[in-house]
Amino acid sequence: MAEYKFPGVYVEETLGLGVSVASGETAVPVFLGDFGDAVDSVAPLRSWLEFTELGDTLTASVFAAVLRGYFANGGSRCYLANTAGRSLDDTLAAVQGYSDITVLLAPGLWDEGEKQAGEWARALAGYAASHRAMAILHADRAHTPAQASAAVDGWGLEEEARSHTAVYHPWVRQSGTGEEVVVPPSGILAGVWARTDRERGVWKAPANVVLAGVSGLEYRASDQEQGDNRSLNFLRDFTGQGLVVWGARTLAADEGITWRYIPVRRLVDAVYRDIATALQILVFEPNAQPTWEKARAAVDGYLHSLWRMGALMGTKPEEAYFVQVGKDITMTQDDLDHGRLIVKTGLAVVRPAEFIMLEHTIELAQG
Rank of each mutant, 00 (worst) to 15 (best):
V181K: 11
A151E: 12
V9A: 09
V11F: 14
R249V: 11
F6K: 12
A139R: 04
D269W: 01
F51G: 02
E50P: 03
W292Y: 15
G85P: 03
E3W: 15
Q147N: 04
A311R: 04
R236M: 11
H304M: 06
I136A: 04
L243D: 06
Q224S: 14
R195A: 13
Q116G: 00
G213I: 09
K316T: 15
S76W: 02
S231E: 14
F322T: 09
F71W: 11
R162K: 15
L157D: 01
R249G: 12
F35T: 07
L137A: 07
T26E: 09
D300V: 10
S41C: 00
T250P: 08
F322Q: 01
L341C: 09
E159I: 10
W292K: 08
S149R: 12
A125Q: 01
N208D: 15
L54R: 10
P29T: 13
V323Y: 08
V264H: 14
V299T: 13
R273L: 13
F63S: 07
I257D: 11
H131V: 02
S47C: 12
V245W: 01
V167S: 00
M1N: 00
D90S: 14
A166E: 05
D328M: 10
G178P: 01
L251H: 06
L364E: 10
D100C: 06
G18H: 07
V350P: 04
N208T: 07
Q366H: 13
R249E: 09
V42Y: 12
V210K: 14
K294Y: 04
T196P: 06
F238L: 15
L303Q: 06
Q147M: 14
A270S: 15
